Amino acid sequence: MATSRTDPLTLEVVELIGTVVARYYEEYEQAAAQHSLTGAQARVLGLLSLEPVPMRKIAQKLKCEPSNVTGIVDRLESRGLVERRPDPADRRVKLAATTPEGRDTARRLRDSLDFAREPLGQLTEVERALLRDLLKRMLGEDMA
C-alpha cells in the first residue's frame, strides 16, 4: 500500500528522523571538537579505523569530492592519526589507514557518543533489530 508524502503519519516520521539526525550530528561535532577534529575528519578517521580504504572509496562513502578527502587525510596524516600505503592488490592505488594513535582516537571518539547509544539502550534487542531492518529497507539495503 503506497503512502502519500502528505500523509500525517509520514510527515511525523520524517520530522522525527530529521530531529534524530540533527541531534546526532550536533553531538558528533561536539565529540569531534573534544579531540581537536572537525566532523569530517572524525568521520574519515572512524571509517578508516575499520579497515584501510582507497581514497576514492572514502569520497564515495562520504559523498564528497576526492579533493576534499585528500585535504582531510593530509591533516589527519600530519597529526600522526593516518598514513598512506600502497594497496597490496594494486600498487598504483593508495590506501589510507589509521595508525595505532588514530585507532585509539577513533575508539575514544566512538565511546564518547552517548546520544545514539543511550536511547537505543532503552529498546529491546528485538526492537533494535526491527529498527535496523526498517532503516536498511528504507535505504534499499533490505535483506531478501
Rank of each mutant, 00 (worst) to 15 (best):
Y25R: 14
Y25P: 00
E26G: 14
E26H: 13
E26K: 15
E26D: 14
E26T: 14
E27A: 03
E27L: 05
E27K: 09
E27Q: 06
E27P: 02
Y28S: 04
Y28C: 03
Y28W: 12
E29V: 15
E29K: 09
Q30P: 06
Q30A: 14
Q30K: 13
Q30V: 13
Q30H: 11
Q30E: 15
A31Q: 12
A31R: 08
A31C: 12
A32R: 02
A32H: 03
A32P: 00
A33P: 04
A33K: 06
A33T: 12
Q34S: 11
Q34N: 13
H35T: 01
H35I: 00
S36I: 00
S36T: 09
S36C: 05
L37V: 00
T38N: 10
T38D: 04
T38C: 05
T38Q: 07
G39T: 10
A40I: 08
Q41V: 01
Q41N: 05
Q41H: 06
A42W: 03
A42C: 03
A42H: 11
R43C: 03
R43G: 01
R43H: 08
R43T: 05
V44C: 10
V44K: 00
L45G: 05
L45S: 12
G46Q: 13
G46T: 11
L47K: 00
L47Y: 04
L47Q: 01
L48M: 11
S49M: 07
S49P: 08
L50Q: 12
L50F: 10
L50E: 09
E51Y: 13
E51A: 10
P52M: 08
P52C: 07
P52T: 03
P52W: 04
V53A: 13
V53G: 11
P54D: 12
P54I: 14
P54C: 14
P54Q: 15
P54V: 15
M55R: 01
R56M: 15
R56N: 15
R56E: 15
K57V: 07
K57Y: 08
K57R: 15
I58L: 10
I58N: 01
I58M: 04
I58G: 03
A59P: 01
Q60V: 14
Q60W: 14
Q60H: 14
Q60N: 12
K61A: 14
K61T: 15
K61M: 13
L62E: 07
L62W: 02
L62M: 12
K63D: 14
K63N: 15
C64I: 04
C64K: 00
C64P: 07
E65W: 09
E65P: 00
E65D: 11
E65R: 07
E65A: 06
E65H: 09
P66Y: 02
P66T: 06
P66R: 09
P66N: 09
S67P: 03
S67G: 04
S67Y: 10
S67R: 08
S67K: 05
N68G: 09
N68K: 13
V69A: 00
V69D: 01
T70D: 07
T70Y: 09
T70N: 11
T70H: 10
T70G: 11
